[in-house]
Design a protein around this nucleic acid. Structure first.
Lengths: 233, 233
DNA sequence: AATTGTGAATTCCTTCACAGCC
DNA sequence: GGCTGTGAAGGAATTCACAATT
């Protein structure tokens, strides 16, 4: 285990490897080579080996990686053996959809609180039965409920203020859907998912078909993901 | 105007610059320097100048960039002067939210068709009045309606097949929310938004606070300090 | 024989630094 | 004086290529 700085490009890929291993494990596959995994994602096999080697020597020469063993390692490395308590702030279309979404890793990420500033929404419940709370008590509820990840789905103009409040409440990880660049304090990590930018970037490639890079693959996604995080470093 | 390859990192930033310019224009600001813009996004001013310089000499030395003029250029470069006709495939929570979302650039991106394979959903309408159609006629409707961007919000196992169908229908730009690596044909651009990966990457950060920065980067602290005492800019 | 782990080479991206212009 | 545009330098991420290991 080295003490080198791990880039976000790497952590994003680790998450993708983990998903792949989950599928392999479910299919009963016992070992996998970096080459075989690389082919699935149009990645270079050396990159996979390097990503993994940051954290230990998990492979066996001549064999590859034991699927279940590597899966456990990645879960540990990514902090997925801990349950994360997640709050969503802003229950518009997107916030509602995420509140009802079954797609997250249910074991690791539990949505345990919902907030909205609109009094008309406060008190109503989403499908899971969770009740929408007013934003007045955001800070104390976040503290009391030990929430450590906040998803921001408020309008752009309100996002920075929400970030400030949840930061004061001790939250250090934020997934931001507001189309705005946030300014996190040191030690606070913001990842922004910006749908407008994604669409506009697609638009660019439609408008410039001659441009290279038109045949993209997962690498571009991973790179974008890393790049679009606010700051915190 | 150069013929160099424009990276997706650059096109993503162009979209961010455009958003910034929209705000400046709305605020009545007439010119902006690369330095002033850079401060808003924690970017290097040379990077902004370089990104813009790929497409022309838009600035004026000693002055900066004329906001409205640069805004028009960026709209043109990003292909936003054309209206894009967008379809959403998969009207689950997320697809529904996006169908009702007002946040996209309404002038450039029009959602004009919705598809779902579930017969129970076919025929119902979203808030805008648009009707959900069955997936049987996906290809012909996409052609007939001249749809050029497709948003995929189906479950992971169905996404690749949707990509194939819309590719056959002539679509060359896809925004994919399914947590899976897709394999687009050459000339087809796929951007994937992967919420699980985003969350897991945040989880890594929480599990390894020393890795990504608490007090590691002093410059970051200084930057924050400078920002938070109303002095700068 | 197969496959890892990794230094070296390469490619790509960002930042510096300054000439050139307003 | 202030700011752009850009070649050069620097830094980061990726890929190559091979010795080491099972």
């Amino acid at each position: 285990m080295k003490t080198e700085k791990i880039s976000e490009l790497t952590t994003n890929r680790l998450s993708v490897y983990l998903r792949c291993l989950n599928e392999l494990a479910a299919a009963g596959v016992e070992t996998i080579s970096s080459q075989a995994m690389a082919e699935q994602f149009n990645l270079n096999s050396a990159q996979i080996r390097k990503d993994l080697a940051y954290f230990g020597e998990f492979g066996v020469r001549g064999v590859g990686y034991y699927v279940e063993e590597l899966r456990q390692h990645l879960m540990k490395i990514l902090g997925l053996t801990e349950k994360h308590r997640v709050a969503i702030v802003g229950l518009g279309n997107l916030g509602m959809a995420l509140a009802n979404y079954q797609g997250f890793n249910q074991h690791s990420f539990n949505i345990v609180a919902l907030f909205d500033a609109d009094p008309a929404k406060v008190g109503s419940r989403v499908r899971s039965g969770l009740e929408i709370q007013g934003s007045e008590n955001l800070k104390e509820i976040i503290k009391r409920e030990n929430i450590n990840i906040v998803i921001i789905t408020v309008p752009a103009h309100a996002a920075e203020q929400v970030l400030e409040q949840v930061t004061e409440a001790g939250v250090r990880a934020v997934l931001n859907f507001a189309p705005v660049h946030l300014h996190p304090k040191p030690g606070v990590k913001v990842k922004t998912v910006d749908l407008t930018t994604s669409l506009e970037s697609l638009s660019y490639f439609l408008a410039n078909p001659s441009a290279d890079g038109i045949n993209v693959d997962y690498r571009d996604f991973l790179r974008y993901e890393a790049d679009s995080n606010g700051a915190g470093r």
